[in-house]
Design a protein around this nucleic acid. Sequence first.
DNA 1: GTACGATTCAAACAAACGTTTGAATCGTAC
DNA 2: GTACGATTCAAACGTTTGTTTGAATCGTAC
Lengths: 248, 248
Amino acid sequence: MPLNAMPDAPASGATKARILDAAESLFMAHGFEATSLRAITASADVNLAAVHYHFGSKEELFQSVLARRLDPMNRARLELLARLESEAAPSPLPCERVLTAFLSPALTLARDPARGGKDFLRLLGRAYADPAPFIRHFLAEQYGVTIARFKAAFARALPHLPARELSWRLHFIMGALSYTLAGTDALKLIAELNPHDTANDEVLLRRLAPFLLAGLTAPLPDPSTVTRSLRGESARRRRAAPAARKPV
Amino acid sequence: MPLNAMPDAPASGATKARILDAAESLFMAHGFEATSLRAITASADVNLAAVHYHFGSKEELFQSVLARRLDPMNRARLELLARLESEAAPSPLPCERVLTAFLSPALTLARDPARGGKDFLRLLGRAYADPAPFIRHFLAEQYGVTIARFKAAFARALPHLPARELSWRLHFIMGALSYTLAGTDALKLIAELNPHDTANDEVLLRRLAPFLLAGLTAPLPDPSTVTRSLRGESARRRRAAPAARKPV
DNA sequence: GTACGATTCAAACAAACGTTTGAATCGTAC
DNA sequence: GTACGATTCAAACGTTTGTTTGAATCGTAC
């Protein structure tokens, strides 16, 4: 009898893939430490030892879960950036299009080739905030060249921006992006974001992009602007010369 | 012999505080799940059972660690906002000063009353991304009124911005802030941010504020702007009508 | 059918976990 | 000094953890 090529057969050779799917979902929901291998293998309906047979350890499983989708996403980012740059040549690619090249592959992934796209992005958002060395090393290796490439593209688009300022702003962008992707129900903290919005990642990124672009192209900070009113001497100055305030 | 009031005595009544300090540091470094009570009590040099005697459980200890600094910080935020608003009355408080009222107490905390200020902010950044129910419930209760209050202040400063758009942008702000505060060495991913920068939180927030302000006051998103080039038809349009691009 | 590498399985491993217990100790009021 | 509540302590509780083992099973080539 033909045992192979059955679409929903649990005993097919897809044990490895089923472990990856279950692990992705559970790691996303509870984090790396709080997810046990027994919970994963039970959810995937495979034997406990299968994880070590196919992946070697829990940490390697986690890295495989990330790499399965991160790898193609970063490749798509680099390819899209190269394509847009060659189209715009010889003039440098404008800032908002570099940003598009960075965000849109994430959007495509969120819209889910196969299943788990959104779960994965939330997992990725969590991984960014995890200080575990094996996670940080993995992300650094996986993201290093991509970030460097985009940083160079942004530097060309924003020649007036000092390199260190650009580094910080890319850091802020990664923060807003990963936090948004992590999509904890901290949303409910803020307000009446209806379920429609949270479900539609395209709407989400269409709102995120202008926000990030504005921050990226913001004027350079003025040393006296932000921390001025914090020491308690703002009352008199505020009333005396309100027009002296900088239009940040 | 006078056993009390010794500054560095390990046997003083400060057992509870020593547990809080050690827990704050270790929770920051390894997260909630990956930090064991045995590691905490060993670091604090107290008996293992002291945690349950003084706090009841590991989860309640975690909440106490957060509340010890979050409570005063949010109170300072609300008081500063009220002070600035009353100074600006009857005109509404401008956007950048509402943002200042939100950020500067975090800066003050980072500059460390006593010790552990920076460790705590990194811990808080991690907690934002943690989906554990008891953490989310705690943060929602702790932050609910503060966020609502600031949202109202921002709404007065930005009357043209739809309420839902404002909610999203506050969400992005929380993301960039918490990710920055979490301060994982993802910094090293991006670039040559020298140690001086990462050590100086004032510099950090002075760079974060203009970024966030620009995003907050960005023009409303244009439906066709962001996702346009993502489908693959951008080449012809880009060359044909470059002037049609919106100056987002 | 027989042999063999790849895979799955039930069972057990030692270690670490959060939590509980009950006695020992401390500080203070009588 | 005696009594008492608050606190500390060593030890053990039962569970769960990641990992390992060795035999059973499968799929395929001879």
